[in-house]
Design a protein around this nucleic acid. Structure first.
Length: 293
DNA sequence: CGCATCCCCTGCCTGC
DNA sequence: TGCAGGCAGGGGATGC
C-alpha cells in the first residue's frame, strides 16, 4: 500500500511518538522480513535516542544518536502503529493492561516513556536495517534513488531530463524509482489522468510548449505535485487496512479518479470516456482512453 | 545498458 | 460452505 503519501503520513505519525525519546528495547518476533535482519540490529538500535525522522522516497529514516540511521521500508503491506501506555487505574495498579500483539507484529520498539511502536507486515515485503549515517547514500538500497518530487517541486525541465532517451512507457518510467522517487501504482495512474497523458505513451515523447501553448511536461510535473500533495493532506490512501501511526485511516482513496475504477465514467468534466484497465509491466494500469493521449 | 518477466509472501475476494 | 484462482500499494534477481 504505501507510496510516498502513506510513508509521509507514517513519518508524521511516528515523529511525536519517537522523536526525542530513547528506544529502551527492541523485540524481534522473527529474524527475517524481506531480508534477514542484520545480526547487530538490536545492539545498534537499543539505547539510542531517535533524534529526527526523515523520509527519502518510500523509505523512513530514523536518525539515531550515536551516528546510525534506522532505515525502514514498508513494502506492500507494512505499517507502524503506536500504542501509548495506558495510565494504571488506581484500583488495579498491578494489572496495567499491555495490549496483546497481533498477527504479523514482527518488530516492537519499546520507548523509554512506555510507548510501544509496532511494525506489522503480513506479506513481509518490507525490511529495515541500521547503517552509519555517512554510509547511507552509498548503501545499495539507497544508491541511485531518483529525484524527490516535492520540496522542491519537481520542474518540467527535470522531468524532461529524466525521460530523455527513455524507451519505456510513461507508466513504467514513472514507476521507476531511479527516475522519480516515491510514486507507485496508484499515484502514477492518478497523475497521468490529471495530466491527460496516456500511460502507454513513450516517456521520451512528451514535449515542452507547442505552438498552441500546450506543455505536456508541465502538466505532468504539476499533476505529480498536486496528486501527492492532495494525498498527503488527506492522510494517504487506505485501501485495506492502512492507517497512519496514529491509527487514523487516510481518506484519499475516495478521491481516486481512475485507480480501481474500471468501467466507471471518466470523472473529467466534459469527457464521455470510460475507465479501462490494462496490464503494463505486470501491473494494473487504470486510465481513460478518451482524454488521456 | 534498458526493459520485461518472474518471484518473494499472505490475505481477501470472486466465481464455481 | 469450500476451494481454486486471481489479484494486491514494492522492488530485487534474472535474462534478453
Amino acid at each position: 500500500m504505501p507510496e510516498l503519501p502513506e510513508v509521509e503520513t507514517t513519518r508524521r505519525g511516528l515523529t511525536p511518538a519517537m522523536a526525542g525519546k530513547a528506544i529502551f528495547r527492541v523485540v524481534l518476533n522473527r529474524e527475517d522480513l524481506r531480508f534477514p535482519i542484520q545480526a547487530d540490529f538490536k545492539v545498534r538500535v537499543a539505547g539510542r535516542t531517535v533524534e529526527r525522522i526523515d523520509r527519502r522516497a518510500k523509505y523512513l529514516l530514523l536518525r539515531l544518536s550515536g551516528g546510525d540511521v534506522l532505515v525502514a521500508h514498508l513494502g506492500m503491506s507494512g505499517s507502524f502503529r503506536v500504542e501509548n501506555r495506558e495510565p494504571a487505574p488506581p484500583t488495579a495498579v498491578l494489572h496495567r493492561k499491555i495490549p496483546r500483539l497481533k498477527a504479523h507484529d514482527h518488530v516492537v520498539f519499546e520507548m523509554s516513556d512506555g510507548t510501544r511502536v509496532i511494525y506489522n507486515d503480513p506479506r513481509r515485503f518490507g525490511f529495515m536495517f541500521a547503517v552509519a549515517s555517512e554510509e547511507l547514500d552509498r548503501h545499495p538500497r539507497m544508491r541511485g534513488i531518483g529525484l524527490e518530487p516535492l520540496e522542491p517541486k519537481i520542474a518540467p525541465a527535470a522531468l524532461a531530463r529524466l525521460f530523455n532517451g527513455a524507451g519505456a512507457s510513461l507508466k513504467a518510467a514513472l514507476l521507476d524509482q531511479k527516475r522519480v522517487a516515491g510514486l507507485g501504482n496508484i499515484y502514477v495512474c492518478e497523475a497521468l489522468h490529471r495530466a491527460g497523458l496516456s500511460p502507454a505513451r513513450a516517456a521520451a515523447t512528451i514535449s515542452g510548449p507547442d505552438r498552441h501553448g500546450r506543455d505536456a511536461r508541465r502538466r505532468l510535473a504539476d499533476a505529480i505535485v498536486e496528486v501527492l500533495t492532495d494525498a498527503i493532506d488527506a492522510g494517504g490512501s487506505s485501501l485495506r487496512d492502512f492507517s497512519g501511526a496514529d491509527g487514523k485511516p487516510g481518506y484519499f482513496q475516495h478521491s481516486f479518479r481512475v485507480y480501481d475504477r474500471e468501467g466507471a465514467a471518466c470523472p473529467k468534466r466534459g469527457c464521455a470516456g470510460t475507465i479501462e484497465r490494462v496490464i503494463q509491466a505486470g501491473r494494473s494500469t487504470y486510465y481513460c482512453p478518451v482524454c488521456q493521449r
